[in-house]
Structures are given as structure tokens and as C-alpha cells.
Nucleic acid binder design. Structure first.
Lengths: 215, 215
DNA sequence: TTATAATGACTGTCCGGTCAGTCATTAAAC
DNA sequence: GTTTAATGACTGACCGGACAGTCATTATAA
């Protein structure tokens, strides 16, 4: 009775590759919508519309809204930590160069990409997804801090650094990156700062502190 | 509607104090619920129940859910910045002591109180309340950074500090406090760190960096 | 044909906001 | 002191819109 609209229907995704590609489209769209509205206010109709599929299709790829969110986060946080673990601890480099390499990675692989938004989204929703927060802590935070700590300890061991504060609290070394991440999303619009220059200034300060002669 | 009605008989008119006290109860309850569920998932029935009133009563104190959230934030961020502006720039103190005084304030007046949760809530919801984010930026961030910058500039001017990085990016000085705030809410439960010791280590590093002799 | 990917109208639930009614309290009348 | 009238703070059942998730139907590939 209803005049059903004749709509072009997308060809069914039969191969595994097509399936993965469509899933990625859905995750990308979901990130957009979740970032804009937050988890609770994001409407699956909007996610579907942005992905160019019908709402029902979402449920062929993901069993619930919460699972969609989790898949989105999981797909974003897996990669780069492993890459950093591979590349940064170059034994021929000085501790300073290792630290700079790590910050370069941070800037190019996270702060300068969509992963930044995923991290921000995760931070914002973390208290509502304690399980996910724990995964993030275990897979990203712990591993990241372990790298930092090993760099700092190596710096102390080879006489390059005179202070052990970073070995004790590696959080202090990445704190400015967190500021950068949040500032970008919240205040950059009406009070822009030069993130790169800020992180450079941080490294300068940090090196002075770690290497400086005690007065 | 705004003018006081002329009445022959007075009803049990609650005093202004009682009214304020009840409003505060409602705001406290709202903070609990908002922290637990986030703005969107917080139910006004729960807020009312926790405050020990009926839902309708909320609307005698606040015109909408959003206004409730805003009132809550506003009531929490007004005070301490002004207090810091008064106390910290003691001209008889060294720049280092001023900085330490500021961190003492930060610990005792924000990180150690309920205000910490308000700030976290605000950070989490800020992208959904751009107007509120702007207020917070103007009333807290800008003023806080101004204090930091003036301390740093004074330190340089009187020869106490040799670096100007903090004057250029005062964000770097408070970055660890942000880490402390987020860590407390997200990870402290299963990976506790000694916040106070971390901030102390930060100040130690910062002083080394600012005062240290150039190599 | 058959199998199945895709669709979108539909359903049930949830919750912000409303408002007609209740009742404790007080001033006035006596 | 007692009764009565007036008040408005407070209540909670109710309403309407929104939206996650379902499923009968349709389009397409094999």
C-alpha cells in the first residue's frame, strides 16, 4: 500500500575484502557521529546514513550500539604502540634521540591523525565503559609508559641523564601530549596554540632538566 | 510574573537560605548522577530521588536538564581561581615559591576536592556544550595561564630562571596536573600512582630545567 | 531457482518535561 | 485559643517524541 520507493540497492558484499571494507566505512562513519554527539546522543540512523547503508545493515556487521563503539576503539588503538615498540629502542641512538623519535611518532601517528579523535572519544566515554578503559590502559598506557621508562633508565645508566624522575614517573614526559590532544579538541578553535612548538619547548625543558648540571 | 505578588496571606515562604540549601542539595545529587552516568544517560528521576525530592521539584529550581548541568558547573568553578589570583603573586616570594604555592593550591583546592570531578565532567562533556567550554576557557584556563606566565616572566626578569619556555607555553607547567586529574578518575582504581609524589617530581624537574646552567 | 545481503517500516521502551491536585503552614477572624 | 481561609511548595501520574533494535520483504549474485 505504501508507495515503496524504488531505490538502488548496493550489491551484496560477498567477499571477505568487501565485507571488511564496508565494516571500515561503518566504523569511520560511527567515529564521525560519536565525536559530534557523544555515545549516548549518537543516532544509529545517522551512522547508517553517513555510511550509505540502511540501519538494519549495521546489525549485520555489529550486534549492538555498544559493540559498534568498542569495535571502533579497538580498530584504532591496536597498531601504533607495537610500531613504536619496534622502532624506538634503537640501541645505537642516544636516549635523547630515542625520546625525540618517540615524540615524532606521537605527533605523526596519533596527534596528527584520526587516532587523536579516537583517543579523545575514549577518554570522554571511558568512565561509562570501564572494561574498555581497562583494555586501553593495558594495551596502550602500560606499554607506552614501559617504553618511556626504559628510555629513561637507559639514559641514566649510560650517564646521559642525571635525574631519575622520568624513570619514576614516565607520565610526566607525555603529559604535554595530553594537553595538546585536549586543547586541540576543546579550545583550538578560539584560542589556537602552536602544538608542535609547545612539544618542542617541552623536549627542550625536559632535556635541560635531565641533563643539567646540579647547581 | 517577575514582580512579587501582593498577597493578603503569607504561605510557608521558605527563606532564601533554605532555598539555597535545597538548591545545593540538588546540585550535589546531580553531580553524583552526572558523574556516574554522564549527562545524556543521567535520569532526572535519579537526581530527584537522590536529592530526596520529586522530579517536579527540580523544575522549581532549574528550568531544564541542561540548565541543571550548567548551574552545577558554574557553582563549582567560580571560587578558587580568584583566590589564587589573590594569594599567589606574593611579591616577597621567589618565583619558585610562587610556583610551589600555586601547586599547593591546585592540590588542596581542586585535585583533593569535589571540584576535581566537576572539572573532569566538564572536560568530558565540553564538546557537547561549546558555550560552557568557552566560559571555562575564559574564566579558568586563561586566568590560570596568565598567573603562570606572570610568575615565569618574573622569574626570568629577576634572574632566577634562565629559560623562557614556561612564559611561552605555561600549559607545560600544569600538564602533569591534568594527567593527575584524569589518572585519578580512570586508572587509579587498578593502577594506583602517588599523585603527590608525581607532582613533586614534576616541580623538581621543572626547577632544574628553569634554573639549570646551559651546557 | 536458491541463497542471502540489504532494506526501512515498525515496535516497545525510556525519559524530559508538564500540570492538576495535595497538604503543611500561617494569618486573620472570632 | 480555636477555627477558617489562603497560600504556594511540592508531588507524581501522565504525555509525546525519540530512538535502539527487529523482521518481513525485496533485490541481487550465483
Amino acid at each position: 500500500m505504501t508507495a515503496r520507493q524504488r531505490t538502488k540497492r548496493r550489491a551484496p558484499a560477498r567477499s571477505e575484502d568487501e565485507r571488511q571494507a564496508k565494516l571500515q566505512t561503518i566504523l569511520d562513519s560511527a567515529l564521525d557521529i560519536f565525536l559530534e554527539k557523544g555515545f549516548a546522543d549518537a543516532r544509529l540512523d545517522d551512522v547508517a546514513a553517513r555510511a550509505g547503508v540502511a540501519k538494519g545493515t549495521l546489525y549485520l556487521y555489529v550486534p549492538s550500539k555498544q559493540a559498534l563503539f568498542e569495535a571502533l576503539v579497538q580498530s584504532g588503538i591496536g597498531g601504533p604502540v607495537g610500531a613504536i615498540e619496534q622502532k624506538v629502542p634503537d640501541p645505537s641512538a642516544s636516549a635523547e634521540d630515542q625520546l625525540r623519535a618517540l615524540f615524532y611518532f606521537l605527533r605523526t601517528e596519533i596527534l596528527g591523525t584520526r587516532r587523536r579523535d579516537i583517543v579523545r572519544l575514549l577518554l570522554m566515554e571511558a568512565s561509562r565503559f570501564p572494561e574498555l578503559a581497562e583494555v586501553y590502559h593495558r594495551e596502550v598506557i602500560v606499554r607506552g609508559l614501559r617504553i618511556l621508562r626504559s628510555i629513561a633508565e637507559r639514559g641514566v645508566a649510560r650517564g646521559e641523564f642525571r635525574s631519575d624522575e622520568i624513570a619514576r614517573f614516565p607520565q610526566l614526559a607525555i603529559a604535554p601530549a595530553l594537553v595538546a590532544l585536549l586543547w586541540t579538541s576543546l579550545f583550538q578553535r578560539f584560542d589556537p596554540i602552536d602544538i608542535e612548538a609547545m612539544l618542542e619547548a617541552h623536549l627542550t625543558l625536559l632535556m635541560k632538566a635531565l641533563k643539567g648540571h646540579p647547581s
